[in-house]
């Protein structure tokens, strides 16, 4: 069984990173809708795919956050990507697999995955 003492290694590793994260107000935010509608549509694995991707990438200026219902329940799971100085991108009907692609192509590659956006879904 894992032990709480293992957390001290994470703490030491994160101490420096957290200082830079705290100073970095203009990082990228990945926001996942986690109200009843989002959860019922499968938002939990989507959220955690982003958490895993961020932890595994070593990128420091990206945060994963949760929000409530933004009123487009029929499109859940909904993910918003907010980058400083750019228009917000809203992804709809997300899955863990789509989340991985959004992370690779948009967060790391800088190019939004147009086919998963609400604009494409409404056409």
């Amino acid at each position: 069984m894992k032990s709480l003492a293992e957390l001290s290694a994470i703490r030491d590793k994160m101490k420096n990173q957290v200082a830079s994260r705290a100073n970095d107000l203009d990082g990228t935010k990945i926001i996942v809708g986690m109200a009843t509608c989002g959860i019922a549509a499968g938002a939990r694995p989507v959220l955690n795919a982003f958490v895993e991707a961020v932890a595994g990438s070593g990128i420091e200026n990206v945060t994963v956050a949760q929000t409530g219902c933004i009123g487009i329940c029929q499109y859940e799971p909904v993910v918003e990507v907010v980058e400083p100085g750019k228009d917000k991108v809203t992804y709809v009907k997300m899955t863990a697999e789509k989340a991985q692609r959004v992370f690779d192509e948009h967060i790391k590659g800088g190019k939004p995955v147009t086919e998963f956006t609400i604009g494409s879904a409404q056409k």
Binding site: M1, K2, L4, A5, E6, L7, S8, I10, R11, K13, M14, K15, V18, N48, V51, E52, V54, A55, V64
Partner: peptide, 25 residues
Amino acid sequence: IRAQLDGVPLDTPEVLLWIRDYLES
């Protein structure tokens, strides 16, 4: 967990994944 982390936020991705793995174990 908070007592071990000395100010590192609980929503740090590495901490969240540790919580999941700890509970799985």
